[in-house]
Computed example of a mutant assay.
Amino acid sequence: MSIDRLLAQSTVSDLDVAREWYERLFGCAPDATPMDGLLEWHLSDTFGVQVWAEPDRAGRSSMVLDESDLDALAARLTAAGIADATPEQATSSRILRLDDPDGNRVVFTGP
């Protein structure tokens, strides 16, 4: 088996609400809308994030993304109105935990 690409997915109840939140999170509009109910952000050539509208499953997703500068990210997210984002110390790294409007967990990790 050879896996060359990964798309993490958050399942949401309202795509319009989620789109606005994830646009503020990533600082840009989605890179693709491959089908009705699906938004994609391509964060590199080999990984990205999908936001999928499926109300019955909404809020049960989580993803972990590495970030090189958690403090700068936290400041940007706070300014964007995402949250009063404050990184915290974990066992082996620092983390920034966020929840989207449906309760899906997005965790950024970094030094």
Rank of each mutant, 00 (worst) to 15 (best):
R105N: 08
D36C: 06
F26I: 06
S93W: 12
V106S: 03
R5L: 13
Q50K: 12
M35H: 10
W21F: 14
A80I: 07
S10L: 12
E88A: 15
D56I: 15
S68R: 12
P87A: 11
S68G: 10
T109I: 10
L98F: 06
A72D: 08
V106E: 00
A80L: 04
W41V: 03
V17H: 07
E20M: 14
L73W: 03
R94A: 04
L70S: 01
A58I: 03
H42P: 04
H42I: 00
S10C: 14
E23C: 15
L43T: 01
V64W: 02
S10N: 12
L77S: 09
S13Y: 05
R57C: 11
R94Y: 02
G48D: 04
V17A: 14
G48M: 05
S93K: 07
Y22D: 08
D16M: 09
L43A: 05
R105Q: 13
V51P: 10
W52G: 01
L38S: 04
A53M: 15
T11M: 06
L43K: 01
Q9I: 06
L25I: 13
L25H: 08
C28Q: 13
S93D: 13
W41S: 00
V17W: 08
A18Q: 01
T78F: 02
P87N: 05
E54D: 15
L25P: 06
Q50V: 04
T91F: 13
D56M: 12
A53W: 00
S92D: 12
A74L: 09
I95M: 07
M35P: 04
L15A: 07
W52Y: 15
V17Y: 06
L39Q: 03
E54T: 08
A83N: 05
L15G: 07
D31Y: 11
L15S: 08
R57M: 14
I82K: 08
W21Q: 09
G103I: 01
A18F: 02
D45R: 09
P55Y: 10
D99N: 12
T109Q: 06
A83Y: 03
P30W: 08
P30E: 00
F108C: 00
D45N: 14
V107Q: 11
V12P: 00
L96N: 00
R5I: 11
D69Y: 03
D71T: 14
D16L: 08
I95P: 05
R5T: 15
